[in-house]
Each structure stands twice: as C-alpha cells, then as structure tokens.
Design a protein around this nucleic acid. Sequence first.
RNA 1: GCUGCUGUAGCUCAGUGGUAGAGCGCACCCUUGGUAAGGGUGAGGCCGGGAGUUCAAUCCUCCCCAGCAGCACCA
Length: 648
Amino acid sequence: MSQISLTFPDGNQRNYDAGVTPADVAASIATSLAKKAISATVNGAHWDMQWPITENASIAINTMKDDAAALELVRHDLAHIMARAVQEIWPDVKVTIGPVINNGWYYDFDRKAPFTPEDLGLIEKKMKEIINLRDEVRTEVWDRDRAVQHYKDSNEPFKVELIESIPGSDPIRMYWHGHWQDLCRGPHLQNTGQVPADGFKLMSVAGAYWRGDSAREQLQRIYGVAFLNKEALKAHLNMLEEAAKRDHRKLGREMDLFHMQEEAPGQIFWHPNGWKIYTTLQDYMRRQQERGGYVEVNTPQVVDRKLWEASGHWEKYQENMFIVEVDEEHAREKAVNALKPMNCPCHVQVYNQGLKSYRDLPLRMAEFGSCNRYEPSGALHGIMRVRGFTQDDAHIFCREDQIEAETKKFIEFLSAIYKDLGFENFAIKFSDRPDTRSGSDEVWDKAEGALKSATEAAGYEFELNPGEGAFYGPKLEFVLTDAIGRDWQCGTLQVDFVLPERLDANYIGEDGAKHRPVMLHRAVLGSFERFIGILIESFAGRLPFWLAPRQVVVAAIVSDADEYCREVAAALRAKGIRAELDLRNEKINYKVREHSVGKVPVILACGMKEVEDKSVSVRRLGEKQTSVVSLDAIIETLTTESKAPDLA
RNA sequence: GCUGCUGUAGCUCAGUGGUAGAGCGCACCCUUGGUAAGGGUGAGGCCGGGAGUUCAAUCCUCCCCAGCAGCACCA
C-alpha cells in the first residue's frame, strides 16, 4: 500500500498508509485524543473521522474545544438524533432534510397530524435517551441504485427524490446513528454521546414547503437551538428574551407611538408620539435630499388602470394592487383605478412634461411617496411589513454612462444618512441578471459592471445574489438587521432600462436626436414605517434625543414647585424642545419610574430647592445619577442636543 | 397565500356549558412625598364576527376576520 504524508498544525509531518482515516491518525497519537476527537480538518475541509485520506494533506484533529467545528457537528448530529427520535415515537413519519442553521438546526417531516408543543417535549426526552445511549455513528458510501431502492423499500419518497437530484458524479453517502439511517453528506460526530445533552432545546414547529416550493407538499418543520453547554444555551435563550423586549410592536404600545386594528390590516394609526418621530425623520430626509441635488415632487394616489397597463404593472403586479372601481353616475363606462403601489410611473409622467435636454440629466426626482400594496396576509409584520407605507423614493433619470457616478454618489449619500441615524454597519447585496429579463446582454454587462465598480469605488463590499435582479435591471439592496437578527431590506438602487421605454421617456442629446434615459429607482430608508420599526428596535426605544418624541418631562416634586415647572417647560419649548409637564399628585419616584419606562431621555425634577436656585435636577434615561444644574445651563445643553445631526 | 397556534377590561393575563375575574392603567379622595411603583374607593367587558348543537354557549362544532411563529412572497 502506498504511503502519504500528513502535516499537523505544528508543522510536524508523519507518513501513513493511503486511505488512513482521521480516527486512525488520532489513535496513532494518543488513545485519549482518539476518544475525544470529533472530526478533522483536512486541507481546510471539515472531515469525518471515518473518511479515508488518500493524498498528502494537512490535517488537524478537532475536539469539542474547536468551537466552530464542534457547533456545526453538534447541531448536525442533533438534526439526525431528532429525526431518529421522531421516527422511533411515530414510525410512520417521513423524513426529508435537516440542515444546520444559525444557532441550531431544523428538520422537515411529513406527518398528517400536527406536532404539538407536548410532542416537542416527548421528542426532546427521546433525544436525550438517544444521546445517553452513546450509539456509534457509522458511514458508508452507497451505490446510487441501492440507495434509491432502499428508500423505495422503506417508503421514504422524499429521500428518493433527493437522491435523484444529487448530481451523478457525487457519492451517495449514508450515515447511521445507532440503528437509525439517514442520507447525509456528513461529517458527523463519532457517537451520539458526544452531543451535550443539556445544550439544546426544541423551539417551535411551523409549516415549510418541500424544497421551498409553495406548489409542493407542505411539511412540518421543527426548529431547535444548540450550544456546547448549558450556559451558552441559557445565554442564547436570555438573548431572545431581551430581543423580545425591544420588539417594536411592544415598544410602540408602551411608548404610545401607533396602533393597528382589524379594520385596516397592514396599515398604521400613528399616535402623536409616533408621528413626531416620523415627521422629524422626514424633515431630516428632506434637508438631505435638497443637499443631495434632488427635486421633490408629489403625485396622485389613485391612478387609472391605463397608466398601470402602460407601465406593465397591470400585467405583472396586479395581484398586489388595491383596485378601486368607481361607478361614475354620468360616465358611460366604469372607471377602474388602482392605488399606486409604486411611484415610478407617476414620476415618468412628471419627467415627460416638456422636452428634456441632455443638460437636464441627471435629473433626480424625489417623492415621499405614499404607496399601497396588497401584501399577502402572512407577510404582514407590525410596521415593518405593511400594506400602506411611504417610501423616501426617488428616480434618477440619467444617461447610461452616468449610472456608475450616480450609483457611487448614492451609496455615499445613503451611508452618510445611515451613519447619522446610528447604523454604522449595513450589508450590500448585489442582484444580477435573472433568467427572464428584458434588454440585451450587452446592456446588462454595462449596468452590472457600473453597479459593481461604483460599490467598490465607494469602499464597500457586496454579497452576490445571483439571478435575483429585477427583469428590468440589476439592483443593489442595503440591508439592516433587527433585534433578533432578522434582516430587513431598507435602501435599494435598481437600474431600469424598461420603464423609460414603456412610458416613452426621452431627452434630446447633444446630437439633436431623441435618446432614451435610464432610470435609477432608489430609496435610502426604504419606507418610513419599516425604518422607524428598525430604529425603535435598534435603540430599544431609547431614541437619540433629536428623534425622541418626548424629549423632556419636567416633574414637580412638591406642588409648590408647579409654577416654576411651568416656567421651565415653557422656556424649553421656546427653544423648540419637546417638553412635557408632570404636575400630578404623585411621588417623584413614581414619576421617574413611569417616564423611564416611557423612554423619555431627560427628566427634570424640581422641588423647592430648585425653585429657590433657579435650577433643575437632571436625570438622564438609563443613569441613576442625577445632577443639579442651572436652568440657563440645561436650556443651552438641551438646545444643542436637540439639533438633528445635519444641523448640529 | 400555506401550516400550526391565539383572540376575555386600555395593557398583561386567569377562568367556567348556567352571560365573568386579577394585576397594572384610568377616575375620585387622602397623602406634598427628593429620583424606578404611598394608601383608599370606584368606573370599566356583545368574552373578535356569523351560523349551528343545547333548555342554556364566552366555553362544544363549522365558517369568516384579525394577530403571532415559520414557510412562500417582497416585481
């Protein structure tokens, strides 16, 4: 048998027979290592202890101390252990797939009766039993036909379909956790006992489509989270609890920002406090847009279907549109309108008024455009995903050769705003050409190239979403993350070659001939509603002073100080600071607690001492310490703090 | 839209086949208290909507609506 040379992390090399497994290698070093090993890293690849190594390679033996490898294996083995547990309890349940995800894993099952929360408890108990059995994990590569036959014999149709979709050149690998067998590419632990029995928890069960296809069977997906020990699991569950506390729906109620009700699903009733955030943010955006060279317009909400037919929305987007039919008494036919789901067609109408010259380009046309979309009921989520919302929308009409410069300018514009609003970090996703698209490959090449090089020139990296572009052009998406790690697309920039064509937008070039402009659809916040939701969660309700709906509460400690409190509040209001009075017949402790819970950034408490000194006792949100400062000083301080970042 | 769960006072939630309860909040009274809940009294509910079973439904069944989790969707 031929020999191969394995190089260890410390640089040492040893020779082994070709086909040696990491288990053999570990055993050759120390029996204790062989026992506690969980996997190997061979030439950078995560390697099962049972897989043979046939060539010279670098090798590292992983133990539970190697967090990344250990977490992946633990979660992956738990997926198998859970599937085994489920089939041991309910032998007729069909298994499908069970990958590792963030913080844990899931496994999709086909079973008629739904899993109940009690079932999850049963499964968890069974899983712990399996772990305690310390069953050996074993693997074999099978012949494709044998694997298919096996799963046909054992009546596992989803597995048959999986095998048939594995490319012909790939091996079909089987794994056994004890007696229980599953198709799996591996790697896995050496035995089930290597899984920490107190480091995991089954979290929830929900429907999920087979292969992510809503036309296919709906399966039941059980989610679990897993960590290397009890403490880490506890920390994770704790984090989830903390995240739930900053849910914008909860804080929206507590801070009296908005509400929603059955009669208007997916639409927001803004209360005074919430609307103050909204208008403050809008005022800020308006100033930024003016500086950024945009002109602002406003266009109709209810627009005849003729325009939507021309734009292509009627054909491609109708099921997401609110259709408004009007029987006009004296009209000969029924007028059919739609609430605008997007602003772009209306903006082209504005653009098309009068002849445009190449000298007018780029023309950046902005609108705080109120849109309505009939979103699927299951998609609605607080104020983050709604049916009525306002975009900070703009369309840049430009020449093809201006795409790159405009894109770069936009990314810089957006990142400055995100920074002002407290988001230093955001992800950029780049979606390139989909299979069905309009426009020539040559034009797509140019547009994709322009977006990519503009992103790089602005100093950002992007993640590629292959084939996810719109049919009319490639796009950039700017993504922020909420309190529990869910991503929300906020900003976007989409190149559009199609709409100017469909709505016949043009400009007169230097050559005196008509040319077609390109449109860049772009938004920074995306929608005010979603963005405010993210702001609330990101700051856990403790908005920066300039955005806080209630900035100051002036609270009397004794009622003899009421008159002075009125003076203080009036003085602050004269400086444009949002100050409220609390002269209620309550103790200062009570008032402090209530306004702290209400996330008011500054409480100014006044008793007789303050009345006499013309001072205030300042308590900042989140600080236990108070300080007494003069009225003049606090007015000056808070006046400065109340300025929006662009005015400071 | 799909699967599952949920819907009782403004909020958070108990509860029962014989039309309801707590805490907080709210109102009033007492209390003027120095930085995260002072005390008392009281008001407040078509038990999400509709139909059915029943002598009787908030409770059981069916349909609808809305919310929650996940999936799909987000051109």
